[in-house]
């Protein structure tokens, strides 16, 4: 029983670590912009959070810096893709390389040093007393609880509000919104910056909640898993959460079973999330069965008024 609780509560933590980035990317892609640089931005978030926490011993300030880092990177990306209308794939890869390099460069001082300041587990009163479920869901850190609130809010925003309707229109046909007098460029800027901020928080979750140390490239593909999950979830935050949990389960199953299967190389367990991503991606986005996907029609296309 303890093993199951360990696997499932680990799955929740893993899921949240990719969910912030996943929700950010969902909103960005819904607005018609594809940000391939999730991994790089997560690394910048992870690094900036750790550096601030290490030097100031102040977790709140660290999160503020993380959010600012995400926002600045978002502005750069938005400037390149929205204002200059550069190719979004190329810009995404540039963000990936910039984030990987710059985080390693600026974080080298504190690399592998213990931070000793992290988001600790806070058992919620009453709720954490529920057998099994309490331990899995309600004995987590603050960022996990915020995610519990954020998920329904994000879903509600996209599907039930006026702003959500505009967001969906933005990704499907920006020209219509432009004709209706909405500022397409400003909206895209906003959603890109929101997205990168969430990605940076995801990174900080990895370095300040899941672990408590900064290491170069420590997100190890989580940004890509988040990116893949967005397509898998058909751009729906609720489905995204299920996908993230599934990945969390697969990844924790490996690390927990390792002890019981000493003969099997540990690399096999570590590789499982990556193999799972490929398999899930092929099954969920392969066009061998359905012709209709929920992909925003204007995804990855720069909006140019002149060629409307």
């Amino acid at each position: 029983m303890n093993l199951i609780v360990a696997i499932l509560s680990g799955a929740v933590v893993y899921a949240v670590s990719v969910l912030y980035a996943g929700i950010g990317e969902t909103f960005t892609e819904r607005s018609g912009v594809m940000n391939l640089g999730v991994e790089g931005i997560m690394l910048m978030g992870a690094m900036s959070g750790c550096v601030t926490a290490f030097h100031t011993r102040n977790l709140a300030l660290a999160m503020l810096i993380v959010i600012l880092t995400g926002a600045v990177l978002g502005l750069i990306f938005a400037f390149l893709t929205v204002t200059l209308q550069s190719d979004q794939t190329v810009c995404g890869m540039a963000m990936l390389i910039l984030g990987t390099g710059l985080s390693g460069f600026l974080g080298e001082d504190i690399a592998s040093k213990p931070i000793n300041l992290k988001f600790t587990k806070i058992p919620l009163p009453v709720l954490s007393e529920i057998p099994i479920i309490g331990d899995i869901l309600f004995n987590q850190n603050l960022l996990v609880y915020i995610m519990y609130l954020l998920l329904p809010l994000a879903t509600f925003y996209i599907y039930k509000t006026r702003w959500g309707l505009k967001l969906r229109a933005l990704g499907e046909n920006p020209a219509v919104l432009d004709a209706a007098g909405e500022n397409v460029f400003a909206m895209r800027y906003g959603y890109i910056v929101f997205g990168t901020t969430m990605m940076a928080i995801s990174g900080a979750f990895v370095s300040l909640a899941q672990t408590n140390v900064w290491q170069e490239g420590m997100t190890a593909g989580k940004g890509w898993i988040a990116f893949a999950l967005v397509a898998f979830s058909s751009w729906n935050p609720a489905t995204l959460a299920l996908g993230a949990l599934l990945f969390g389960f697969i990844s924790n199953l490996g690390s927990n079973l390792q002890i019981y299967l000493p003969g099997v190389p540990t690399e096999i367990f570590s590789a499982m999330p990556y193999v799972a991503t490929i398999v899930v991606l092929i099954i969920s986005t392969g066009n061998f069965r359905k012709k209709h996907t929920a992909e925003p029609a204007a995804l990855a296309k720069a909006y140019d008024r002149e060629s409307r």
Binding site: G40, I76, F79, L80, L84, S86, V90, C91, M93, A94, M95, I97, L98, G99, T100, G101, L102, G104, F105, E108, E216
Partner: peptide, 16 residues
């Protein structure tokens, strides 16, 4: 990590 950092910055500027 200076080399990777420089690559990233160069790529951003060239795109711009």
């Amino acid at each position: 990590q200076i080399a990777t950092m420089m690559q990233g910055v160069i790529m951003i500027f060239v795109i711009a």
